[in-house]
Design a binder for these strands. Structure first.
Length: 510
RNA sequence: GGCUCCGUGGCCAAGUGGCUAAGGCAGCGGAUUGCAAAUCCGCCAUCACCGGUUCGAAUCCGGUCGGAGCCUCCA
């Protein structure tokens, strides 16, 4: 049974979709007024993984991520740069999609844009007015928080504690906590015709309208960053439930936010607190666009999407992730042991790991271990992995099972000396174990394709290396270790590592 | 001030009542190697602090200290 932490009930609940076997997920996506930063990728990566796991568990999942392409900040940006709002939205959406692709997020089914659903947004607003939950004033439309009995239940605050934005609209609101469903257009602002005059949607209404349009009045999972609980999701929930008179979402899921560590990555040390106090005060900062964080494209360039994805998935999605370059580097080192095993497997069996088809469903990947102690261990690791994932998508625990699996497989190869000896039976078991690793890692969305600079280079490099390795082998054969070591040390200086394995000599760059 | 959350080995990070507290990185010792690299084996924590509940707590309750988020745009 899959268990999910629900922000609404503040506890883990058994996951039971509204309709057996079908799951609807809505994740709040970006407002496309600027380039995305790494913090924006946490939600998409975890929900991409969640969808994979639910699909793997036999469910038919529809995952929606919205794009907010009309908003005050977008309008300001448009003025600053002197180009139309749509142009900015288009540019930033493209940037967002590119980043998602680089990080292996490819499970999204629909990405609706607010500007393409204006009719539904206006209709939704009208419905709320008709039902007495909203009122129009001078071209603005506000949600009447006082009319909603349940207001505040998601973020656990009373309506009057939830003081909304003051600003210039405050004078027209009945109550300070009322929020805008529709904003009257000023001057040359982008606008759409509505029953209340020209204007644009408020921040929350698009999600209520688009989720209803695609997933229905009630759906299973609504996700987003923890910072969206209030006011965004609280208001969405209020709009939808007042409009429909039934629960909007069964499980509200919120991912933790990311913070930036300092340059050394040493963050939050517990000893020598006094000595470090001074610098600690400035070490951790929230990552946000308004504070100028950025450079996601650079991060992807230098580290690669897989490393970033793996780094994020090693922490539970509800925890705060402290981002640091050294942390990413470490994730890269950890990934190496997987890549080496894949190469080792290919040398033994001739099968390219990346061509193995991942198992589509969890029951298909089960196997009979018989009296094979090795396969029993593999089955145990697989079960542990599934248990971790069942428990609120504990990807951090699940990755540790992957490492266990790698060690178990390497040990098996060593014990049976599979690199030298032929053993059909052992190789069959090995293949089964590696296929399991393929199955489980595919759920996390990693190891889909070989890493960028894996073994091998261009034709010329390969030929030169072959020659050098042959020369070194001759030197070693005649016990001329001075020459052999000069070759190896010289290569090390230019970043090439030589490995003398039992089955031959290999090399790798970097 | 109100509402949430967190504090596990040098660093990162699972575990939320009960076998010897996962896993990764770093380090140390060993096997292997001509020497290395890779791989394998072994070593390295009583869970911020204090008190309480319990046969039994890192895990529950209270307090103290420290840190974070939201309450204003934010994934």
């Amino acid at each position: 049974m899959i268990r999910v932490y629900n922000t609404l009930s503040k506890q883990k609940e058994n996951f039971q979709p509204l309709e057996e076997g079908k799951v609807g997920i809505y994740l709040c996506g970006p407002t496309v007024y600027d380039k995305s930063h790494i913090g924006h990728m946490v939600g998409p990566i975890i929900f991409d993984t969640i969808k994979r796991y639910l699909s793997f568990s036999g469910m038919d999942v529809t995952w929606v991520v919205n794009i907010t392409d009309v908003d005050d900040k977008l309008i300001m940006k448009s003025r600053d740069r002197g180009i139309p709002m749509e142009a900015i939205a288009e540019e930033m959406t493209e940037d967002y999609l590119k980043n998602l692709a680089a990080l292996g997020v490819d499970q999204i089914d629909q990405m609706p844009k607010a500007t393409e659903h204006m009719d539904e947004i206006i209709q939704f607003t009208q419905d709320l007015i008709d039902k007495g939950f909203a009122y129009a004033v001078d071209g603005d439309v506000f949600f009447d928080v006082a009319a909603d009995q349940g207001y505040g239940k998601l973020s656990n605050r009373s309506a009057d504690a939830a003081q909304g934005a003051g600003g210039e609209a405050a004078s027209r609101k009945k109550s300070a906590s009322d929020f805008a469903l529709w904003k009257a257009a000023k001057d040359d602002e982008p606008s759409w015709d509505s029953p209340w005059g020209k204007g644009r949607p408020g921040w929350h209404i698009e999600c209520s309208a688009m989720s209803r349009g695609i997933l229905g009045e009630s759906f299973d999972i609504h996700g987003g960053g923890l910072d969206l609980v209030f006011p965004h999701h609280e208001n969405e929930l209020a709009q939808s439930e007042c409009c429909h008179g039934k629960p909007m979402v069964k499980y509200w899921m919120h991912n933790g936010l990311m913070r930036a560590g300092d340059a050394t990555g040493k963050v939050g040390g517990r000893s020598d607190r006094e000595a470090e106090e001074q610098q600690q005060a400035t070490v951790e900062t929230k990552i946000s666009r308004s504070k100028g964080a950025g450079g996601l494209a650079d991060l992807i360039d230098t580290h690669g999407g897989e490393r970033i994805r793996f780094f994020l998935l090693r922490t539970h999605y509800r925890s705060t992730i402290i981002f640091s370059e050294p942390g990413l580097e470490e994730a890269g080192v950890a990934l190496e042991s997987f890549y080496r095993l894949f190469e080792r497997f290919e040398r033994i069996t001739g099968t390219d790991f990346y061509t193995i088809a991942p198992t589509a469903e969890r029951t298909q990947g089960e196997f009979e271990a018989g009296d094979c102690e090795f396969l029993k261990q593999v089955a145990d690791h697989r079960q542990s992995y599934l248990d971790h994932m069942d428990d609120d998508f504990n990807t951090g625990g699940a990755t540790s099972d992957l490492f266990d699996l790698v060690r178990t497989i390497n040990r098996f190869i060593d014990e049976h000396q599979l690199e030298q000896a032929e053993s059909t039976e052992a190789i069959a078991a090995l293949t089964q174990a590696v296929t399991t690793l393929r199955e489980l890692s595919a759920i996390l969305g990693v190891f889909k394709t070989p890493p960028a600079n894996s073994a091998g280079g261009d034709a010329l490099t390969n030929q030169l290396m072959e020659l050098l390795i042959a020369l070194r082998a001759e030197a070693r054969a005649s016990k001329n270790f001075e020459i052999a070591d000069r070759i190896r040390d010289g290569l090390a200086e230019i970043g090439v590592t030589i490995e003398d394995r039992k089955d031959g000599t290999g090399w790798r760059a970097g």
